[in-house]
Write a protein that binds this DNA or RNA. Structure first.
Lengths: 339, 339
DNA sequence: TTGTACGCGTTATCAC
DNA sequence: GTGATAACGCGTACAA
């Protein structure tokens, strides 16, 4: 077992001073050709790499991005991570991923842990419980400390920061309009409780789209799901209750469960009931029937968020502060679950 | 904007020495009651937290685990991350996640980046390209440097390290036996190319199970898929070619595509053709018909891997070296895609 | 051309 | 009881 090499060891080995070694490796012109060669050869031979921790301490920069997300099982979040990773690595940054499990306490804890020097900036999507409480002082705290923060997807207005979101209202309208265009008359929505911003906004888009097309909005056509534990039965009951000819689900799990509920009721998708989802994941693609959906471009959101963060990290500190909000366009992917 | 507080600043503010502050905060008995109170009050008020980077440098420990996985879109890997996160956070460790994108070069690069002081140990699943090349010297290198490494899922014998794997052969046999027990006579397997260890082992299990039951093994009943890009058409052609009454797929994407291929052929699942998958993900659960599958317990694998790693990190260095291999049992989850 | 000294933030050891 | 000093590994301004 051969432990990592340090400048000090090289210096001792070659019988020169530490700074000579350091300078040689950084190709400083102060150092003579021959010593430089010698040192570089030695370093290469024994595969010297500077210690990141020491560099971080010295430069007050870790070249690491902290990502905090509510859960990783939603395919959407994994695509976001993938996008973040992609541009981060490209620019020489590492990515620390922490899961809040949708818990306020875990979110706070994770952020404290990371904020104490481990990272240069945050990319975060707010936990469900945090939105429910409406308590954002841990977020505001980090930006006050001068640590850049980019919020994505589940964003909150109260926090002054860069944001990467999609236009949920517009996306939802797109979905509902699509259903209407295909002849739907009685459209139900399967959404989340209102304190989840995206659920609220998508419900709003649904409502607006109906109104703009001269439809009535019936509260019985709106299902708001609180937790993911037994969505099957909730959705099944909801579908049985009314005579829908189309359903709009705010995520792909809901959409898949909706299809099942329709079939359990003895109806067919898309012939009797059309179904449209939100977020384009593996499930939507592989499902039978494959699911028409509003695509959220998770990896692009991740890329944008990373770009935004790194831009802020690398700009000179005397530039004036300004917060951007990037709205990633949604798309409509038509597949088998609509006519 | 208020930057982070350091010991030095507290010392200056309170007009005492740095070491007095440090000791006070660590409740050292050498310090007088009143100064200690004063310092602690001040630190609490301004929310002092020691700088992780400085601690890492001092302690030669980062309390961070590096996880390198081939891809994150496979639901299996996300559950593993989730498991790792879980026990790591519990024991005060952070998790850095890096994606190799199944590329040898990215795997090497990521590992080098992390190995230079950023982390205390690795949890890794080998990239496809790496297995193909059979070049593991970057892995061997890190263990030679004394950095603990735990391999999971796609493990390789050549590397001396702890391992967390499932018994792929046994799992596959379980799947095939299940099909045979349910009356299947002509079973096809949809697997990956042989250099992916799990694909090879599961194919082996398939073969053994058939032989043990007195069936012939027909090479035309074995499909080995190289890349995920157009599995649909490959699987469709494979299914049309033969007259299978059951299919065993080595992951859930293959299984879902198999169901579709069967239906395209005009047959029904499970009535005409039974289908069984491997890995229990969202897709298998939500699919219609829901998919019978061999469960891989990804999050348990992650937990075991993290436990193994942390155990090694925290044991005294003079203990003798030994490598454990933990085999996580597979389970059979029967759902609608089998009779 | 090379080496010395300092600082990043922390803790441990030793001196006062 | 309190404070100065060294050390972790590195880079750099400055001195020789």
């Amino acid at each position: 077992m051969r432990p990592k090499l340090t400048l000090k060891q090289i210096a001792k080995e070659l019988d020169v001073s530490i700074s000579t070694v350091s300078k040689s490796l950084r190709d400083s012109p102060e150092i003579g050709e021959d010593t430089r060669q010698k040192v570089q050869a030695f370093a290469k031979l024994y595969n010297y790499k500077p210690n990141n921790i020491a560099l971080s301490l010295k430069n007050r920069k870790t070249k690491t991005i902290g990502v905090v997300i509510p859960e990783i099982v939603h395919h959407f979040f994994t695509t976001v991570i993938s996008g973040i990773e992609h541009v981060a690595n490209e620019k020489g940054y590492s990515v620390i991923v922490c899961l809040s499990d949708n818990s306020f306490d875990k979110e706070v804890l994770n952020m404290e842990m990371l904020a104490n020097g481990s990272i240069d900036g945050f990319i975060l999507s707010v936990a469900k419980e945090t939105m429910q409480k409406g308590d954002y002082h841990h977020l505001i705290e980090v930006v006050n400390q001068g640590m850049p923060l980019v919020l994505f997807d589940r964003s909150v207005e109260e926090v002054p920061s860069d944001k990467v979101i999609i236009d949920d209202v517009k996306g939802a309208k797109k979905a509902v309009q699509c259903l209407i265009d295909k002849g739907a008359k009685n459209i139900g929505i399967i959404s989340t409780v209102d304190y989840i911003s995206v659920g609220k906004l998508r419900t709003q888009g649904y409502t607006e789209a109906l109104q703009e097309n001269g439809f009535n909005v019936n509260q019985k056509s709106i299902l708001k799901i609180e937790n993911m534990d037994n969505i099957e039965s909730e959705i099944s009951a909801f579908v049985k209750e009314s005579d829908f000819d189309a359903l709009f689900a705010v995520n792909e799990h809901f959409a898949a469960a909706a299809v099942r509920a329709v079939r359990d009721k003895g109806q067919k998708v898309p012939d009797d009931v059309q179904v449209i989802g939100f977020t384009d994941g593996e499930l939507s693609k592989r499902f039978i029937p494959s699911l028409t959906t509003i695509s959220q471009h998770g990896s692009r959101m991740g890329e944008e968020a990373a770009r935004l963060l790194i831009e802020k990290l690398e700009k000179s500190p005397n530039e004036e502060e300004s917060y951007k909000t990037i709205i990633v366009e949604t798309g409509l992917i038509e597949r088998e679950s609509t006519k």
